[in-house]
């Protein structure tokens, strides 16, 4: 039976959406990322990003080539757009395993506590003590350059940040009465963790995921810049920036425009993460 309440309380989803629409940070981030995502998915390149024209290398930006051409006469705009797909795909794919593993490790160790928690804590400390890039570069050297190396590297080291954050959050939730009540009410451990704890830590993990995708993307670009990432001729922002650095002062467009693409995507992901945190009231 429904009452004739004068003011219905909106469902949580609707409340969330209202808060989201009032949050300019989230909207700005979402708009940028939608555009980037569209570029990545549809890849509307004006030219073949691999087509070389050795007679028209290093042409400045013009109506025919909005971003100019690179040393081998390839259209930079087409390569920047094609690289969006490459770099974003690698970043998202490389973020999946760490997200799942980190979330599981954090939940289990936080919930179980005791010796298991202690061991996970020490493993996490050990990884944290290493400089991040040194670790990634070592793994890439061992696993081979290119995409595979990046996936392996992130699967190995990427879960650390999730595990730390989720473990702390789970630990604090466990001290709250409702968790004990759920267990006391006869629910299994799996059910408590899966149905009660997970939904409460997920927003935190998703916000972290945005930041991680950004970090991985920057790492992919950095590895490309160092020659350890995506291999030519596949377009990648990092290798494009690196290719242009010899003539940064004379042919500025070769490095600068791919660099702007990195910055724009980075800002988009940052804003999205920040906005989500605001809306979910994680602060």
């Amino acid at each position: 039976m429904t009452g004739t309440a004068t003011r219905t309380v909106p469902r949580p989803g609707v409340r969330w959406l209202r808060r989201a629409l009032r949050n300019p940070t989230l909207i700005a981030g979402a708009v940028i990322m939608l555009v980037v995502l569209a570029l990545a998915v549809f890849s509307p390149t004006p030219y073949d990003p691999f087509a070389q024209d050795l007679d028209h290398g290093l042409d400045p930006p013009s109506p025919a080539h909005w971003f100019g051409t690179d040393q081998l006469g390839r259209d930079i705009l087409s390569r920047v757009v094609a690289a969006t797909g490459t770099d974003l795909r690698i970043a998202v794919l490389a973020a999946v395993v760490p997200f799942v593993v980190g979330l599981a490790v954090g939940l289990v160790s936080g919930y179980a506590g005791g010796w298991l928690d202690w061991i996970v804590g020490r493993v996490v400390d050990t990884f944290v003590a290493f400089p991040f890039y040194v670790l990634v570069i070592v793994v890439v050297f061992a696993a081979g350059t290119g995409e595979r190396g990046i996936y392996v590297a992130y699967a190995l080291v990427g879960w650390i940040s999730y595990a730390r954050v989720i473990r702390a959050k789970t630990r604090s939730l466990c001290r709250q009465g409702w968790v004990e009540a759920a267990y006391g009410g006869g629910l299994s451990h799996t059910r408590v963790v899966g149905r009660h704890l997970l939904p409460n830590v997920l927003p935190q993990a998703v916000v972290l995921l945005m930041t991680e995708i950004l970090l991985i993307m920057v790492a992919v670009v950095t590895l490309g810049y160092l020659g350890l990432g995506v291999q030519p001729p596949t377009p990648d922002w990092g290798t494009m920036i690196s290719d242009g650095q010899l003539f940064l002062t004379t042919k500025w467009w070769v490095s600068t425009l791919p660099g702007l693409a990195v910055v724009t995507t980075g800002v988009g992901l940052s804003l999205l993460g920040d906005g989500l945190a605001d809306v979910w009231r994680l602060r």
Binding site: S161, R164, V165, V207, L208, M210, T211, E212, L214, L215, V218, A219, V221, T222, Y225, G238, I241, S242, G244, Q245, L246, L248, T249, S255, G259, V262, V263, G266, L269, S270, G273, D274, A277, L282, R283
Partner: peptide
């Protein structure tokens, strides 16, 4: 918060990439 520092770190890395490239102009 963790993601704040992470985001700051990310931005720092982006600028580091640029700084690397920009050294040519010193």
């Amino acid at each position: 918060m963790t993601f704040r520092t992470a985001a700051a770190r990310a931005v720092a890395v982006i600028f580091a990439v640029f700084a690397l490239a920009a050294c040519t102009a010193s």
